[in-house]
Simulated assay, not measured.
Amino acid sequence: MEVSGIYARTSPTLDRVVQVGVVSGKLISVSFPDAIPDDAEHDNAYLDAVIDAIAGEDADLGAIQIGLTVPTDQRAVLEAVRNVPRGDAVDIGVVVRMAGLDPEDDDSKRLVRETLAANPIPVVIPDHRVRDTPSGAPADVADALRRAEGI
């Protein structure tokens, strides 16, 4: 997928807009604006997969190519969270270890929390699977994802 642009549609599950940003075939953002932007297209495979995942369908989010423009330590956290399997929930200590951070260091836990709160690609990087941390998605979206996955 080499198409770049902004794509948005209303999710029937959430009854709200889901928007993705794609650059050079890589997903760079997932957001939930109040309205569909005038310049947004509607048809995109990545958008389809995100909306399907929100609906509880078994979408292959791991196949989505992502483009992260974050510092290395944040990238390690996001990549670790992306590896948490669908339907599983982990605590922050597991993410700290998966990301190669120091589990004894409070700064490591702070980094995980801050990184997940600023997650540019919620749903695809499933921060809703990490207990007791914020999500890059609005609370109702994170709750819908947990319900869809039975966690």
Rank of each mutant, 00 (worst) to 15 (best):
H128V: 00
H128R: 01
D91V: 06
E2H: 12
G56S: 10
S24E: 15
A139C: 00
P122V: 05
L116V: 00
V90Y: 05
V50F: 06
A144F: 09
E149D: 12
L47S: 01
T133D: 00
K26F: 14
G21R: 14
P71Q: 12
Y7R: 06
V141F: 06
G25M: 13
R146D: 02
M1H: 13
L145H: 04
G150K: 04
L27S: 08
D127M: 06
S135C: 11
L145V: 01
D105R: 11
I28P: 00
P126R: 04
A53V: 03
R131P: 01
R129I: 03
V50D: 05
A76P: 01
D127H: 07
A63F: 10
Q65N: 13
G87V: 10
R9S: 09
N119R: 04
M1R: 13
D43A: 11
V81Q: 03
V18T: 13
A8Q: 05
E104Y: 11
L27R: 08
A148P: 06
Y46N: 12
V84D: 00
P122L: 07
P85Y: 05
V130K: 00
Q65W: 12
E149K: 07
D140W: 02
D73W: 03
N44I: 09
P126T: 02
R75K: 15
A80V: 10
T72R: 15
R129H: 04
E41K: 14
V96M: 02
G25N: 14
D48Q: 12
I66T: 14
V18A: 06
G56P: 11
D38R: 09
Q74F: 00
L14Y: 08
E79F: 06
G93P: 10
D34N: 15
T133S: 04
V81E: 01
I6M: 13
D106T: 13
E2L: 10
R110G: 07
I121A: 05
A55H: 08
L68W: 10
V70M: 09
A144R: 07
S31M: 07
N119E: 04
G87S: 09
D127A: 07
R113E: 06
V94Y: 07
T72P: 08
A139K: 09
D127E: 02
H42C: 00
E104W: 05
V77F: 01
Q74K: 15
P134N: 03
L111K: 11
T133M: 01
L101D: 08
L14M: 10
I54F: 05
I28V: 15
A35F: 13
R82H: 09
D39N: 14
V96Y: 04
D102W: 09
S135W: 03
A118H: 01
A142Q: 02
L61S: 05
L101C: 10
I92F: 00
V70R: 08
V22A: 08
I6E: 07
T133A: 09
V77Y: 03
D39K: 06
A142H: 06
R97W: 00
M1S: 12
R113C: 03
A117K: 14
V77K: 05
Y46F: 15
A35K: 15
